[in-house]
Design a protein around this nucleic acid. Structure first.
Length: 436
DNA sequence: CGTCCACGTCTAC
DNA sequence: TAGACCTGGACGG
């Protein structure tokens, strides 16, 4: 779940479900997680959360229980009635982190940190993170080198960018700079695509070129306040969109980016206009990340670009001009050549073929081991996104890129292929591994 | 079965 | 600027 909006929604979630709830005992870390233990134990404490960009901070606050009968055994170390000190834990979510609240016997696989309620039935607040790219730090502050939050510290964020445009960081293409958390704390891959799309800024235009004009804008302003406001609302600039779009996401119903529960119809999926939308182009940026966009890629576009083939997870393109073209009947064609920025109105509901997929033996085994129920009856663990092949060769619209004569080899930037080829099995023997 | 892809950092050459 | 770090879903053979 993790760009700025998802982190913020996570903090709201924690505050909502934990308000008035007393937690108790120790904080448990999974054996597999390489993150630090959380040395906190208390007979009674509260949990609250705040977010900043792509981080969330939980605060554990010991409290005195009113009912008299406190069992002081747990916070023994301090004699008698001294409460332990509060503790902050700062989380980053990596690619797959989230918080969930469950009953004790429904604790999800990949729950790597657990907080237990005092009351019965015991509930568990879990930090769940299948890929384990997420991390936490105890008694840490916000990570140094991350800039102000695009959501909650907009003015600071804006001036941090505009007063540092001489930084070499802004020599890079705007689409890459938007992922630089020193300046754009909270922006991630879907937000950068949506931001650039709304302004039709070529993703590989140099960042400074795009942002410098906003400097004059700062000073100018002979305008009345109301005029400025109007202008701003009607023509938000790029930095304003870095605030507004995340705001839009947190105000949707739902949890923001959430592939687990995506069927093409969630508010979030309908909100997307570019990222993973049918008909959009895509390229790999110099860090190997896929940038979705429409129109001119811009002067700094990678030359013999590796063309990621995307699968679709949902696929529609909103036609802002309202009612119009119904889907052309032969839309289901792979559309090899030009992908016209034509859009279809209909959300293109997934075919909904249950897609009986033989689960791998290994997976099945794990499921059994974990005692998870699967598609049997209740458990609807099968996701049904009709992933159709993305037919969009980058086919730059106005012939923006001369095809390099490099055979269409698709260099396939060997991304990580870890554990491949030469790499020895290594520590596969770790007994804790199966506990994940 | 295998390959590719995914909301993000990190550190090591 | 490459990998490394991970799991799991979709899809191809």
């Amino acid at each position: 779940m993790p760009e700025g909006p998802e982190l913020h929604l996570a903090s709201q979630f924690v505050n909502r479900v934990c308000s008035g709830t007393v937690f108790s005992g120790r904080v448990e870390k999974s054996a597999v997680s390489k993150n630090c233990e959380v040395p906190f134990s208390c007979a009674a404490y509260l949990i609250s959360a705040v977010s900043r960009g792509k981080e969330v901070k939980l605060t554990l606050t010991p409290i005195k229980e009113e009912d008299g009968k406190e069992d002081t055994k747990l916070d023994a170390a301090e004699g008698g009635n001294t409460l332990p000190a509060p503790m902050d834990i700062t989380f980053r979510f990596g690619m797959s982190g989230s918080f969930k609240l469950t009953s004790e016997d429904e604790v999800p696989k990949h729950a790597h940190l657990k907080f237990f309620t005092k009351g019965k039935p015991v509930q568990v607040l879990c930090f769940v993170d299948p890929r384990r790219f997420g991390s936490w730090e105890v008694n840490g502050t916000w990570q140094l080198d991350r800039g102000p939050c695009v959501l909650l510290e907009y003015e600071k964020f804006r001036s941090n960018v505009l007063s540092n445009l001489s930084d070499r960081a802004f020599d890079k293409p705007i689409c890459e700079v938007l992922l630089n958390q020193k300046y754009f704390n909270g922006i991630g891959n879907y937000l950068r695509a949506e931001i650039l799309f709304r302004l039709k800024v070529p993703p590989f235009e140099k960042a400074r070129t795009v942002l410098e004009p906003l400097l004059c804008k700062e000073v100018a302003a002979e305008l009345t306040l109301s005029k400025k406001l109007k202008l701003k609302l009607e023509n938000p600039d790029l930095l304003e969109l870095c605030h507004m779009l995340p705001m839009e996401v947190i105000n949707l119903d739902g949890k923001g980016y959430d592939p687990e529960h995506s069927d093409g119809s969630s508010a979030f999926e309908k909100w997307l206009r570019c990222y993973y939308v049918d008909g959009m182009q895509l390229l790999r940026d110099s860090n190997g990340r896929t940038i979705w966009f429409q129109g001119n890629p811009g002067p700094m576009a990678p030359k013999a670009s590796k063309t990621p083939k995307a699968k679709s997870w949902r696929r529609k393109a909103v036609d802002e001009s309202g009612e119009k073209s119904l889907l052309s009947p032969e839309d289901s064609k792979p559309r090899k050549g030009k992908v016209k920025p034509e859009r279809q109105k209909t959300p293109k509901v997934p075919k909904d073929l249950p897609q009986k997929r033989p689960r791998s033996a290994k997976a099945a085994k794990e499921q059994i081991a974990e005692g998870l129920q699967t598609d049997a009856g209740t458990g609807k663990r099968t996701t049904r996104r009709s992933r159709k092949r993305m037919a969009a060769e980058p086919s730059p619209p106005a012939e923006a890129a001369k095809e390099s004569e490099i055979p269409n080899k698709r260099p396939r930037k060997s991304r990580t292929k870890s554990g491949k080829g030469q790499k020895a099995p290594l520590e596969r023997t770790n007994p804790g591994e199966s506990l994940d």
